[in-house]
Design a protein around this nucleic acid. Sequence first.
DNA 1: TTATTAATTGTTATGATATAACATTATTGG
DNA 2: CCAATAATGTTATATCATAACAATTAATAA
Lengths: 168, 168
Amino acid sequence: MSSRKTASDFSTPAFRQHDHGECARSLMDAAHDLCAKRGLRLTPVREKVLELLLKSHAPLGAYAILSELASAGFRAQPPVAYRALDFLVENGLAHRIEKINAFVACSQPRKEHSPIFMICNDCHQVAETSVKPQSSSLDRTARAIGFNIQHTVVEAQGLCAQCRERML
Amino acid sequence: MSSRKTASDFSTPAFRQHDHGECARSLMDAAHDLCAKRGLRLTPVREKVLELLLKSHAPLGAYAILSELASAGFRAQPPVAYRALDFLVENGLAHRIEKINAFVACSQPRKEHSPIFMICNDCHQVAETSVKPQSSSLDRTARAIGFNIQHTVVEAQGLCAQCRERML
DNA sequence: TTATTAATTGTTATGATATAACATTATTGG
DNA sequence: CCAATAATGTTATATCATAACAATTAATAA
Ligand SMILES: [Zn+2]
Ligand SMILES: [Zn+2]
Ligand SMILES: [Zn+2]
Ligand SMILES: [Zn+2]
């Protein structure tokens, strides 16, 4: 048993068969832990938004979240959703997918990472992986031109293996 | 004199001193050539939008373009700007920067490429570089999980060398 | 050329995403 | 408790983008 990890070892289970109930529960637990450790307040609306995001690996738009919040008895003005999302994103519990103006729960909320996303255009699920910062093409290019990176957006759209197979 | 090129050789001149008048003129010429070769029509409004984008290496939002179009005597309803931008983007003459909902002229409109952008948060200019598709972290990761990439978004926000120096 | 078709542009309206501003309530620390 | 801070409630508006259909212009082929 080697300790080597391939890229897929780091990928979110989005495109792999897995027990998503357990997947979601463990990420919710991790969120509670992380907030406790950092003295952050995972208030009811914030927890509810995270719960909604954790329902699947398909990102949700802010207004979809808002409407789910309304159904669950929360106030439903846009700032309610955006504030909760801001909290989750700022604290590394969720990510914004720029290409589709939507949000997804982070699949590795413990560690600092520069996430990269694979967005399936067919099943709409998003896999999150991350890359060693130093080794990315972006970092190499930035060093070459003296650019100081503060934030990165790395997203790919296409077809996941399952969807591609289904289309054959 | 080696034929090796470093990443900076491929970068747009955005963050380097250069004759931008010449820079813009040659890109406009290239656009005319490309359209002629492909039988595309660089109509007045499309050419004007490209001209506006070529005024600097700082991206412009669709409504900024719209207002410049109005000043220049063009019709100024949103679809006018979005259609021209769609044409330019579809034909590789401009790119959309997802992180800031804005558009920039392509700096290497001839060849197929997967562009990478460096967005300076201070001077708001954007450098475009590109990476050999096979070698990017995104492609390696995609191969590892069997994901078929159709489109990529790779953007970094931060500070260009000049702006960082100026801040010291 | 002239009819036919296709591409582009004009126009109105609306949809979708996001934030500013300020009032109110809840939590925390002294 | 009291003052300070953080979070939430609420209204209004800003910003970004497209649907739908009409009118015009350009390309094409009979
Ligand atoms: Zn899961
Ligand atoms: Zn899929
Ligand atoms: Zn230039
Ligand atoms: Zn700069």
